[in-house]
Amino acid sequence: MLRQLASKRLITQRIQILPRFYHEKVIDHFNNPRNVGSFDKNDPAVGTGLVGAPACGDVMKLQIKVDDTTGEIVDARFKTFGCGSAIASSSVATEWVKGKQMEEVMTIKNTEIAKHLSLPPVKLHCSMLAEDAIKAAVKDYKTKRAKSNVDSEAEPAVKAAQA
């Protein structure tokens, strides 16, 4: 009888502790994620970063919309299928990249995201995922742009050759 009571108390204690497992910032981003959604990935102004965590099977898509002339990230979207920490990390990432230069966002470290969200060590790889997603998005935009530049440079050349 006593033991039952004791175990009951233990369980209720655990339930009380459970919500505190995630930091309130994580819960905030999880409940009200910022910038959820998608851009058209074929839009030349959009860079798409698609990364995954093989260990847990999470996938994260982070997209940036870049002002072609200034190189500034004007908007960002994300879509993440994963745990609360992964969602919160990508949500924070989209907030942080907005209004910044591409070079600037390349310096965002996963440790900063983890610190901001007070992620426990076991969840560090979620913030790693977000860092990788930012880098992948910038890289995608740059390769797209380089390609279109080559194309546009190639066009006049063709014209010149024709002339």
Binding site: G52, V59, L129, A136
Partner: peptide, 24 residues
Amino acid sequence: VNEEETVSEPELLAEIMEIREAVE
């Protein structure tokens, strides 16, 4: 099997993303 590594396999990830969206 390394838990921390993030491998970028665009085709696989695109496929998974699509499936996850379909599930959603």
